[in-house]
Design a protein around this nucleic acid. Structure first.
Length: 602
DNA sequence: GCCGTTTTCGGCCCGACTGTTTTCAGTCG
């Protein structure tokens, strides 16, 4: 929910990988790697019992680094002053420079001399925080998850101050199951569970509002847990109905206004019940993000007010809280769209001017990326066209894979030529939707395209995509993408980062140069709406917008139902501050055609 | 460790639930 990085999935260097020192040869460290070092420093300082605000500074710096569009190493190379970044002062700027130069932070090496690196693993165990981790280390010499497990099974935890029978049992099971890394479920996979649970809760006596807040409401691409907010005069019946839900596997906590359960699927759900007059304040609080909330609370303090989940207070008196609008107004801001609440400049914006109206699903006029049975799809072209029409689209580009992707039955020039003719015939008889002739052509390792110019030139658009050699050196990867974009028939760069959420990191390359190149060549970047891709990510959507590069939100549909994925693409686009104007496939076909033609006339 | 429409020092967001306690620390969100 409101916590950007949760304790139980707290990461030491992103993805739960072991921490650096970096072993990347000459390559500069990525921002998330530097951030991982800072998070680990924060973890260790916390165990040492350091000044909590100093710890917070390291975590804030890690967050800032993860939100940057450009590698800090590049900024340094250009002589930029990193202390201009929020939460980065002289000391932390120096430490960033140190990592970029040496791959190490001396301070972390020193901390490792005092506390074993494995100790931070213990913080992932629910119920173990810094104090208990330190106690386990000092009294029992425990230095890793495995050590904790051994001590627990050997009965060595008994008698430790603060460790009762219940905690020991919980820790023993947790340590055993903590070996595999907890995955954050994808937004799309959580949605059916959320819908069903909300429906169940609405049956509670006396319930008023009932809504999923947290990162789900902010449309983050993955959701750590579900945060549900309900209103009721009497919270008991709502809490009772919640914990009695038939998919609840375990009740982790239950109080009069709040409860936490684990569902059979493993998904954690938190429910909070507040009175109606607190709904707006609670919704702000439970929607997060945590840094956004903290910023709001600081604004409240500056105005002599106090903001919590019950309202905005002047002394004892509530001055706002029933609606989100009242809360934001009380601290001098316009309402911030939930998708933008990440403390990435939205607060300052809300103080000064209205937000742009962010894109909505109904703004989409067409889809420029889908497949049929001709490659690895599951339906005919006509069936896909009909599904797109029912979704409300008026044009659809058919973009099969190209020959290189043999596993997907990719098209060679001859088969593509036949499909072009087939689409012409279909367009003669289809009503209510127009098909565009395209291809998702492989971008080969050297940046060449996987089909000859003669056939690409007959298409309405050419979508280029990387499907292999993800691990090229950054300079090579950048050159590959730039060369592809230079191709005379290139229109759209599909899933540009190449990431698969929770399973594959994106490729390493210079996105800023790619965006700038796309602008010069009047090409577009795709925001692929597949739930496990959502690629471009939010920060690069915003970068593309600022550079004036149009984004194409593509379903990459492989079957009729997949057009629903566009909704998740819209969520991500909104997180990237995109309006209808910033997205190419909000144009009616008459306006789209000249834009596509311009990409193909270089 | 950061930061500045009171401040270059003295602040730094706020509350619920659990477990083991006799009034609260630790953890979590």
């Amino acid at each position: 929910m409101v916590v950007a990085t949760k304790r139980k999935v707290r990461q030491t260097s992103g993805g739960g990988k072991p921490a650096l020192p970096l072993q990347r040869g000459a390559a500069a460290p990525r921002n998330d790697e530097i951030a991982g070092l800072f998070d680990e420093i924060a973890d260790l300082l916390e165990i040492e019992g350091a000044n909590p605000f100093r710890i917070r500074a390291y975590r804030q710096a890690a967050r800032t680094l993860r939100g940057l569009e450009r590698p800090a190493a590049d900024l340094l190379a250009q002589g930029k002053d990193l202390t201009e970044l929020s939460g980065i002062g002289a000391d932390l700027a120096g430490k960033i420079a140190e990592v970029v130069a040496t791959g190490h932070v001396a301070m972390l090496d020193r901390l490792h001399g005092e506390l074993p690196a494995g100790l931070v693993e213990l913080l992932r165990v629910p119920g173990i925080g810094p104090k208990r981790a330190k106690l386990l280390h000092d009294k029992l010499g425990i230095a890793s998850m495995a050590g904790l497990q051994r001590a627990a099974t050997a009965g060595k935890l008994e008698g430790l101050p603060g460790f009762g029978a219940k905690s020991i049992a919980a820790i023993a099971t947790a340590a055993k199951t903590q070996v595999e890394k907890p995955r954050r479920p994808l937004l799309a996979s959580v949605q059916p569970e959320a819908d069903a649970l909300i429906k169940h809760l609405r049956g509670a006596r006396g319930i008023g509002e009932c809504i999923v807040a947290g990162s789900y409401r902010r449309q983050r691409e993955t959701v750590g847990d579900l945060d549900i907010l309900a209103t009721a005069k009497d919270s008991r019946p709502v809490i009772d109905r919640f914990v009695a839900y038939d998919r609840v596997a375990k009740i982790s906590a239950q109080g009069p206004t709040r409860a936490t359960v684990i569902l059979a699927s493993g998904l954690q759900v938190d429910l909070r019940v507040v009175p109606a007059q607190s709904y707006g304040a609670a919704l702000v609080y439970f929607t997060g993000s945590k840094p956004h909330n903290i910023a709001l609370r600081k604004l409240a303090i500056a105005r002599g007010l106090k903001l919590n989940e019950y309202g905005v207070f002047k002394g004892e008196r509530a001055v706002a809280g029933e609606t989100e609008a009242s809360v934001y107004r009380a601290v001098g801001l316009r309402v911030v769209p939930p998708e933008l609440r990440e403390d990435r400049g939205e607060i300052e914006w809300a103080r000064q001017r209205p937000f742009p109206s962010l894109i909505e699903t109904s703004d989409l006029k067409g889809d420029l990326h889908c497949h049929s049975k001709a490659s690895d799809g599951q339906a005919s072209i006509a069936e896909m066209a009909e599904a797109a029409r029912r979704f409300g689209l008026s044009y659809l580009a058919i973009t099969e894979h190209s020959r290189r992707l043999g596993i997907a039955h990719g098209l060679d020039a001859r088969r593509l030529g036949r499909q072009i003719d087939e689409i012409d015939r279909l367009n003669d008889r289809l009503k209510g939707i127009v098909l565009l002739k395209g291809i998702e052509v492989d971008i080969l390792e050297d940046g060449a395209l996987d089909l000859p110019d003669t056939i690409l030139g007959r298409l309405d658009l050419v979508v280029g995509a990387v499907h292999g050699a993800f691990n090229l050196a950054p300079e090579k990867q950048t050159a590959r993408l730039l060369r592809a974009i230079d191709h005379p028939h290139f229109s759209i760069l599909a899933h540009p980062e190449g990431r698969l959420l929770e399973s594959r990191e994106g490729m390493s390359f210079d996105m800023t140069r790619v965006i700038e190149h796309a602008r010069q060549r009047r090409c577009f970047l795709e925001l692929n709406a597949q739930p496990e891709r959502l690629d471009l990510s939010d920060i690069y959507c915003r970068a593309a917008k600022e550079a004036g590069v149009l984004v194409s939100i593509g379903s990459d549909a492989h079957r009729p139902a997949d057009f629903n994925y566009l909704r998740f693409g819209i969520g991500q686009a909104r997180r990237g501050w995109l309006t209808a104007k910033d997205v190419v496939n909000t144009r009616p076909l008459s306006q789209l055609k000249p834009l596509l033609a311009a990409t193909m006339l270089k």
